[in-house]
Amino acid sequence: MIINPETRKRWQRFKSLRRGYFSLLLMGAMIFASLFAELWINNRALLVVHQGHIYLPTYGDFLPGTTFGENYDWETNYRALAEKIKIEKNGDFILMPLIPYNPFENDFIEGEYPPYAPSAHNKHYLGTDTSGRDILARLVYGFRIAILFSLFLLAISYTAGISIGALMGYFGGKFDLITQRIIEILSNIPGLYVIMIIASIVTPSFWSLALLLAAFSWMGLTWYMRTETYREVNREYVTAAHSLGASHLRIITHHILPNTIAILITFFPFSVAAGITALTSLDYLGFGLPAPTPSWGELLQQGTDNLEYQWITASAVTALSLVLILVNFIGEAVREAFDPKTHTFYE
């Protein structure tokens, strides 16, 4: 967006709403941290100095055990390597991430059965799930997937919702009437059920699940977009633009859209929350992304099946609540910042 005075004013106003602003900062930090999760939650070392060679295994191809003089040709077990280096003290050096597990590997403790309770000693700070995978790792990677999923879902449903809504408002008439019916039909179909049917017969992928969900969630925006466009179309500037020979497309994208964007932004945080909730519910029921994708829904399901493993339930519920609360606080503040009407004069 072009930074015009109005936008700047809104931003100032948003910043002044401290609860929302701090929520945004925290949320931003969480997303940023999760995007680089490989650097702090990973079973690959950050840095290995072996016989004078320097290796940075985090990103890039796998390094077979033979690279470091081990007798196997699959991916190096860096935790074991770190132990070895610590004992041998032969000048090699290894730096492991803060949490030395990736979200897929099963870390089993000799003589004990998973799930393991939280333990700083094992570096499973939130414990493990029922197949011995680190919960914190799965929470963080699961968060990354959920947020990306939600954003992708939003990208599709917003694009569809905005363009169709704008067209409805702009053209009106029969097009409007027929599209209204289609929307009514779609919003009446129990989307979650349909997705469950489909997911039970074909295991969905990240993209196909997002597309499926989008197919049932783009309608929400169209109503607002339609009404806003409807209102804008009758304004003088649109009529003026039209008489100057501007095309329909140009009028919509250059004149109407910028003026309606404000209302769309206020929906954004809530839609993100809805996307995360939808993915979590589907995962909970076993109709979401296939195993072993890190997922909050799966953790919730493990937790509710086994309430005696409190750390699983507690981790999943806390994480979910935290994210949804942050998103809601942000959303509330955005709404307030973009909509001066909500400022009661009594303040």
Partner: peptide, 27 residues
């Protein structure tokens, strides 16, 4: 699923990638 994710991890060491496809029993 719990059993399969463990099998999957060790199979990777042999260079075999296992994908898990959970379907409704009748499907």
């Amino acid at each position: 699923t719990d059993r399969l994710v463990v099998l999957r991890q060790d199979a990777r060491k042999a260079g075999i990638d296992i994908e898990l496809q959970l379907l409704d029993p009748s499907a």
